[in-house]
Design a binder for these strands. Structure first.
Lengths: 154, 154
DNA sequence: GGACAGTACATGCGTGTGCATTCAATGCAA
DNA sequence: TTGCATTGAATGCACACGCATGTACTGTCC
């Protein structure tokens, strides 16, 4: 197995590289599905938050810790949570409706919106955080991958 | 840095374990978002397939190769693509409508449905497969992660 | 100043998804 | 055989998403 390389071995080399890629891909899909599903279910049931809602709250908390800023622009928030601009806009609207964040006009650029955590938002985050970590520990660290949704119950 | 373990170091140990978990989680999210988004866009544009549609076709091809079976039960297909039973049902309906699979009553258990690739389905899969592998190679192997969607263009 | 391209966010719309439910078929027990 | 719990798949429904577009604002060029 020195892979020194006759032509005949090139194909099998490529084939095994492809097999490795697919294996990596499927593990990624499985872990993602397990984690997202469990997170959405647990955070939703126990804290009234979806996974993306939690991620946004977390970015806001980190923003405050990191550079002591009081609020973040929506445009800098969107890419960090892998959401489209429109999806983030609506997500922020939901959080605002729930009283977890506030949306204020940006004074320096009135097109922009500054999004800030409320006390309730920070509190909700702090409450949800241990469960978030626990679920991740189980679905990423532990490999027993409790698949979720209908397809898992059966 | 021997982590021999005074009590005071336990907290920092736990903190770094948590930080590692979160780092792993975020990389998982980033890779997944990049890959799924690119796959959906590329396969959609060039082959009229969504990511999940491709995955289902692939499972059907593998099923035939693996145990020479001509068709798979819907119930055994669902968990392998991380979709709920209802989502898979509709996905199969779309594939059937497109002429890529057939749905036949299972003779031994008439509640069940046997899903089989058509010639067109197999052909579509073979055509789409190289692009699928290419996109995965770029988004998983290469780490330049071309984020997709609106949030990426801006 | 006025016109115009570009940017930031909101919104109409179509679509895919999961949950709850429904319907048909099966297996088991009385 | 009849009755009933269980199972496999389809469907009503609500919801979150992305794309395309709309609206308000900014900056630049004339």
């Amino acid at each position: 197995m020195c892979y020194g390389g006759g032509v005949a071995e090139l194909d099998s080399l490529e084939a095994s590289a492809e097999a490795g890629l697919i294996a990596e891909w499927r593990e990624l899909l499985a872990r993602h599905a397990a984690a997202v599903c469990a997170l959405d279910r647990e955070l939703g049931e126990k804290h009234g938050l979806g996974m993306s809602e939690f991620e946004v709250l977390e970015r806001l908390v980190e923003g405050c810790v990191a550079d002591g800023r009081h609020a973040l622009r929506a445009s800098e928030l969107a890419p960090t949570v892998h959401l489209s601009q429109s999806a983030l806009s609506r997500l922020i609207a939901r959080l605002e409706k729930a009283g977890l964040v506030t949306r204020e006009m940006c004074p320096s650029d009135r097109r922009g919106v500054m999004i800030a955590l409320t006390a309730a938002g920070r509190e909700r985050y702090e409450q949800a955080r241990p469960l978030h970590r626990e679920v991740l520990g189980q679905t990423l660290g532990g490999h027993f991958a409790p698949l979720c949704g209908e397809s898992a119950k059966g």
